[in-house]
Design a protein around this nucleic acid. Structure first.
Lengths: 235, 235
DNA sequence: CGGTACGTTGAGTCATATCAACCATAGTGG
DNA sequence: CCACTATGGTTGATATGACTCAACGTACCG
């Protein structure tokens, strides 16, 4: 791991910059975390933790994108979410004191602070404001998970793919030419949507011929957002 | 609503009896809730709150079973979970301060205490222990939601139905003859599994002819749990 | 006794998965 | 520098799980 290229960010500044939940900490608490946290840099492809393993801490993402997925019975990945700067990952397992139920893999070169497990419950107990914000955060994630369940259960693959493209555009944004900033393989797209790689490929080219998107290798350009929304049924 | 048939339970006793999160309250807090809570009795079919509505409080279920579902784009219900005695419902919307994202409907005659919204964040702030337990509870629910996502995305309907039957048996138990205690319509089963009613019917009779279950009207008897587990792929 | 909700079965259709072949690209090592 | 391999992308053919539609049976209820 190459620490030389980046300086360790201080929570006081970093938390506000990347809009993490740690902005609700007071000076003392931030100092404490600054002291014990371990700033780490990760290359693409690195696995931060694996499904089923006990973990000794959680991460606050500082840079990059990390893919969080579960492995299904036949080895197929189901992507649950992506973590980006400001997000904390592995907190679920830490708080409920269970082995990790997901795997975290670096999608784009990342850096994150590793913080030992016991800090999180301590903060919940010592800082009511932080506790409440953490609860809100988790509740929000739970709400999204519930929608996701309903979508996968009831929508067609076509509808879900349109929805995923829109979600990716609102989560990660578009560049100046309306291309999705996040770059995923077709297989990864399939693993979000919950379908086969070939189906994603076919549907993407359908979308393309319907002038909803344009494709340039792995890059996807959103051409007709309105109609994608119609297809995704989120009216 | 008929209050005469049941006496209002006191939180101090009730919370322990039904194993609710309120057992982590101290005497003062329990007193306060006892004072402001509203004990309510609900007949089967009653809707406690509806998707999209703002809600002014949450419920602690005392008796019965309540079905929590989301309505999909074409009006089909997707059952997210069932609440039974000890469970709290609507807490997600209360804590994240959003309109309800699910509907709650009484499945078996129920009673529950209605507690105004602002109490919950207050307790999170005033009782660190309660806060931590609440966080754990939500984290657990989130973990289940994530598994659910993976299952629906990757397993066949047959596998999911087997899994649902097993889940229902562990959540609600079996009677002395190994019949599931919870009684659901075929449509409700379909709305958990995320499939069509007809598919559930066909698969149930398949299971029956494979001697995995027995059917007696709406009642389902678990005959061969081992093989159901094999089918559900949760080895 | 008619009504309403639920359950069942059959037939036909379609979306999606699966399987297989093939191409493009990029790195790797001899 | 070239063969070699790995990885990702694409397309076509085929299979099939699951949905839809429709008809009908059943049961309980006022």
């Amino acid at each position: 791991m190459d620490h030389s290229s980046q300086s360790v960010p201080f929570c006081e500044n970093c938390a506000f910059a990347i809009n993490s939940i740690f902005k609700f900490l007071n000076k003392d608490e931030a100092d404490k975390i600054n002291f014990i946290k371990d700033f780490r840099v990760f290359k693409k492809g690195t696995i931060l933790y694996k499904e089923g393993n006990r973990i000794s801490g959680f991460y606050c993402v500082n840079k990059g994108i990390i893919k969080i997925y579960k492995t299904g019975p036949d080895g197929k990945e189901q992507i649950i979410r992506f973590a980006k700067p400001g997000d904390i990952i592995a907190y679920r397992s830490v708080l409920s004191n269970e082995p990790a139920c997901t795997t975290a893999k670096v999608l784009e070169d990342s850096s994150a602070c590793f913080i030992p497990s016991d800090i999180l419950p301590q903060l919940v107990k010592s800082n009511p404001n932080f506790a409440l914000e953490l609860v809100k955060l988790i509740c929000q994630e739970l709400g999204e998970a519930n929608s996701y369940i309903t979508d996968i259960a009831q929508k067609t693959v076509r509808e879900r793919l349109a929805e995923v493209l829109l979600k990716l555009s609102s989560d990660f944004g578009l560049d100046e030419h309306n291309f999705l900033k996040i770059s995923l393989t077709r297989e990864e797209l399939a693993n979000i949507v919950g379908t086969a790689t070939e189906s994603v490929i076919r549907l993407l080219s359908e979308f393309k011929s319907e002038k909803l998107i344009e494709l340039s290798g792995r890059r996807i350009k959103i051409v007709n957002r309105k109609n994608l929304e119609k297809i995704s049924q989120n009216l």
